[in-house]
Write a protein that binds this DNA or RNA. Sequence first.
DNA 1: AAGATAACTTGCGTTGTGCAAGTTATAATA
DNA 2: TATTATAACTTGCACAACGCAAGTTATCTT
Lengths: 142, 142
Amino acid sequence: MKKKITSDPRSSCPINVTLETLGDAWSLLIVRDLMFFGRKSFNEFLNAGEKIASNILAERLQRLENAGIVTKQRDPDDARKYLYRLTEKGIDLAPLLTDMMLWAARYEEVTMPPEALREMQTNRAKFLANVRNQWELGLGNS
Amino acid sequence: MKKKITSDPRSSCPINVTLETLGDAWSLLIVRDLMFFGRKSFNEFLNAGEKIASNILAERLQRLENAGIVTKQRDPDDARKYLYRLTEKGIDLAPLLTDMMLWAARYEEVTMPPEALREMQTNRAKFLANVRNQWELGLGNS
DNA sequence: AAGATAACTTGCGTTGTGCAAGTTATAATA
DNA sequence: TATTATAACTTGCACAACGCAAGTTATCTT
């Protein structure tokens, strides 16, 4: 018997809908790792600075997969590994993550490459185009 | 004795910093209510569609106040009430909330005024300028 | 003075989270 | 080929967070 992963539909407000999928402390960190740090496997997420617990990571990856934000495939070079990657829906979270970075950079003490920050600030559209570009290049398609 | 509200500093990554303040299912709904629906008092938040519990609401308002995102003052017309309002730091969450709305509108079934959606999509900068403008008008300063 | 309302606060049972340890499948090594 | 290591989970358990209902205090309203 499968455990129930989905739960409540609180309202159809778009902000609420987004929060029901991503409104927790970990999901967007996984998306960040995929989008900006090139992390792809379970252990890479596990060792990624914020020290997520393995059971939480497993559940969040499942949720993100169910939500169509990431996909999972076996690593062709090592069948023990799975490689996770962002879908289009996932890469479209780039604006959201970018705004989170800009907001934190403005109001809190954060650590971030200054040149990345400056590009976000001075040319957001270009920065986002680059993110998408890098993502498409990184697909290494068959 | 005060209860400890703050907890963990997991990392100084700007995305993580934002998530440590706003990474839960309720905080941004309160910000939404303040920013887009003109809600200002405890009971208005309490009856706002998603049915937050009163103890959770009280704690989140305290957290938002501690984080400098909202301020609280007595209602001059009714001393039983407190009026909450966004700070500059709070209104600067408008881009973030806007991205959440756009993302959800693109990938999920949501309910939202079509003209608001179209303005976000076609002229994000103008939409954000309007939000800020409305907020400044709504201050009813002394 | 009595009842209603606003903003919380408290109790309590349920659910989610954070370690640590265990499991299974695959890979690398002797 | 047998042994050990690694990747991706899974399980157990203690503790914290959440959700609901009821209670409290201060401030109107009548």
